[in-house]
Design a protein around this nucleic acid. Sequence first.
RNA 1: UCCGGAGUAGCUCAGCUGGUAGAGCAGACGGCUGUUAACCGUCGGGUCGGGGGUUCGAGUCCCUCCUCCGGAGCCA
Length: 432
Amino acid sequence: MPREVGIQHLPRHVGEEVTVRGWVQTTRSSGKIAFVVLRDGTGYLQCVLSKAEVDEAVWEALRQLTQEASVAVTGTVRADERSPGGVELGVTGVTLLGASVDFPVTPKEHGTAYLLEHRHLWLRSRRQVAIMRVRHEVVQAIRDFFYERDFILVDTPILTGSIGETAGTLFETEYFDLGTAYLAQTGQLYNEAAAAALGKVYCFGPTFRAEKSKTRRHLTEFWMVEPEMAWYDSDDNMRLQEDFVSYIVARCLDRRAAELRELERDITPLERVTPPFHRISYDDAVAKLQTLGSDLRWGKDLGADDETLLANTFDRPVFVYNYPKAAKAFYMKEHPDDPRLVLANDCLAPEGFGEIIGGSQREDDHDRLLARIKQENLPLEAYGWYLDLRKYGSFVHSGFGLGVERTVAWICGIPHIREAIAFPRMLTRLYP
RNA sequence: UCCGGAGUAGCUCAGCUGGUAGAGCAGACGGCUGUUAACCGUCGGGUCGGGGGUUCGAGUCCCUCCUCCGGAGCCA
């Protein structure tokens, strides 16, 4: 068998005889010439068979090539402008490796329910392959960004006791003799402990919300990256966030241009994603939204429509900061000049993609934090270790969480985040 | 949980004031030497989501249940 080559590397092998293994995307035949488009995960390759130039057996083998059959194709690589990838394969041999009869996801249209039921096969389509490759780049950019800035990765637990942001939205499971355990909805509290050990840390993993949300922005299991920085105040925190988001977007523009083109993503709004982002206080945001026709009242968190309305008035991401205390979590630091507010910020992506980051400076005063825990009726005994962090060398610190699927959906320009993860977990979906 | 929408061929859908169930695509077969969701011709394909009711007659009208979709709330 001639040398085996991945499709993405074929331009280096023009004139050589090679073998490519992959899956048949489409076939077209005109009686005496046939085209087979092959996918191997690294790219797409048009293979050309000419009846006059191949053995009868090879031509007959073509008839068995149906959508998504796996094959090994041998032939000579040649440059041809008529071919989509610039190179094509002049086929001399075809071996069927695995037949595929009546592949359920055809090139024609399907409804979302049907596609999700066949997610394991839908994943092979060009669009989904492109999205997964962008997601991979986003994840790699996240890791590289923090590595370059001397953050330490700390993996926080997924099984936890009763600790987190709010009760009632946690998945429960039995935990031996210790009662009920919950799937983590954030690693942040553990990050705070780790930041006191290591300075700048982050956790990156799946997180779970048992909210009965049925919207294009929600999954029950999603990936979140959460950095936590000792000695960062709220302003430092926002500066890091805008550097971080800009870095991720720039990496995708640089290294996944082909995928974004495949997705027909207009990249001009992405090219504007550079620091500094816009900043607007919650007070000003409410006033602005009211003039734009929103019925938002002071004290309430921004609704989805409010986020879109507000973000559409800016040409790049925008921070909304200094939220009302009552609308936010107990661990956020009270504003030094206005006890009604906390030093929290959200980051809203443009083009209606909404909130991709929630962050805050953390309450570092022991007594104030204790008061907030009691106020929220949280089980005090579960927070003993968390309060310890304020008893032994308390420190100014801040952090944030970025939702990976929301970020991928925004960068790819896809309306629903269920396509931004390989196997979405939703209110009504646990299969496949 | 609330509001709205939809369940008809393998898939996507049409089916009007109730009167013998339709199209496109997919599939099978045939044709075509540069196709790009190829194209042209022929053919097969149905418990109209379940149950009940009205009617001479229900895919169509009424009741009920189920499932799914979109949105809200909550949030990444």
